[in-house]
Amino acid sequence: MRRTGAIFAALVAAAPVAARAADIPFDQRRSDSEFVSADTRAMQNDDTANPGMLAVLDGETLWNTKAGDSNKSCADCHGDAKVGMKGVATRYPAFAAEFGRPIDLEEQINLSRSTDQKAAPFAFESKDLLALTAYVAYQSRGMPIALQETAKLKPFIEDGRAIFERRQGQLNLSCAQCHDDNWGKTLAGNLIPQAMPTGYPIYRLEWQEVGSLQRRLRNCLSGMRAAPYNFGALSLVELELYLMWRARGLPIEAPAVRP
């Protein structure tokens, strides 16, 4: 599909002179749910209408299914997810000592799956990984994002911010130009949201399925005609980390529905 290119290409002629973005004042930060249509919001807020809930239910089944050489289910080690996984999604991406870098929730689930459950890790964006992630994230619904700027995470948050504020791609745009400086304004009939990733994994109407924050960020990058980082690339996780830290305090809404 060429439509992404068409929209963003229109920006080339208008690319403004470089200027540093200003952070959104803390008390003005809002969930991106407030920037979608009332119909899309209603679809998200009614569990019987939200297709993301189908992934949550699949995740629940997987949570209770024995797998791998350990022949254990997630539940065998972690117990009831409603208790054991409550609040977990509010602190991801988290620093993983094994790798010396932050990993996101998908990567953490895969880490536990390969090292603890001793089963083959799931592929990025696979149905099973998204389902488990949706199920785990769902246990934090309504809880505020609790990411802390620890000494270990700080350099990665800074890197994420730098990527967010850097102009990139053939269109020479930065994420911040739209999401820090122009949120709430209408762009071709579309409200520009703040890019607060409160609802991931999301059910996106455009995808007609559930997808991860990494997938969403890759969409934005290709829209800007910048090379999208590979799934799992450190830069992508840093971007996720910065966005989650930037959204700290806002409640988790997974699985959200987005256009």
Binding site: L11, A14, P16, V17, A21, C178, N182
Partner: peptide, 26 residues
């Protein structure tokens, strides 16, 4: 870090370019 708000003109340029692209989402 020196930060400044983008000028009103720039905002209008971004918005105008998108609207001009005929991709209104209505």
């Amino acid at each position: 870090m020196a930060r400044s708000r983008r000028s009103r003109r720039e905002i209008l340029q971004i918005a105008g370019a998108l609207v001009g692209s005929g991709m209104a989402l209505r």
